[in-house]
Amino acid sequence: MFRRILILKPKDSVAVLLEEGNTGDSITLENSDIELLEPISFAHKVSIVDLKKNDPVYKYGVQIGYALEDIPKGSWIHGHNMGCDRGKVRREDNNEV
C-alpha cells in the first residue's frame, strides 16, 4: 500500500510519514518508489536515500543529525541510528577543565 509523505526541500535525505507505515508499504518520490523495510509510525522519519555511517541527515533542508550506522533507504530514522549534537554543550566550548 502506498503511504503519504512530506518532503520540503530537494536535498532532504528523509521524508516524514503522514500516516502509519508497515513493512512492505511504499512511498513515492518523483521518479521512483521506495519500499518500507520496517514498520514506521505516523510523523516519524523514513530514509529516502542510502546513508553511510556519519553522513549528514537532512530534513526540511536543514541538517538535523548524522547516521550512526549505514542506513538503507526505506528504513526508520530515529535516535537508535541517528546522532545529533544540537543543543549539547561541549566542555571545550565552555572552557571548563
Rank of each mutant, 00 (worst) to 15 (best):
L29V: 04
E30N: 14
S32R: 15
S32G: 03
D33R: 14
D33N: 15
I34A: 09
I34W: 06
I34H: 06
E35S: 15
E35P: 04
L37Q: 09
E38Y: 07
P39A: 15
S41Q: 13
S41E: 13
S41N: 13
K45T: 02
V46F: 04
V46I: 12
S47E: 07
V49K: 15
V49Y: 08
V49P: 06
K53L: 09
D55V: 01
D55L: 01
P56F: 00
Y58I: 09
Y58C: 06
K59W: 05
Y60P: 03
Q63N: 14
Q63K: 15
I64K: 10
G65I: 02
Y66I: 00
A67F: 06
A67Q: 09
L68Y: 00
L68V: 03
D70G: 08
I71Y: 02
I71G: 00
P72C: 11
P72E: 12
K73Q: 14
G74W: 01
W76L: 12
I77E: 01
I77V: 15
I77T: 04
H78N: 14
H78S: 11
H78G: 14
H80L: 05
N81P: 13
N81Q: 13
N81M: 12
N81A: 13
M82I: 03
G83Y: 08
D85H: 05
R86L: 11
R86D: 02
G87S: 04
K88T: 06
K88F: 08
K88P: 01
E92N: 14
D93M: 11
D93N: 14
D93K: 10
N94D: 12
N94P: 00
N95V: 02
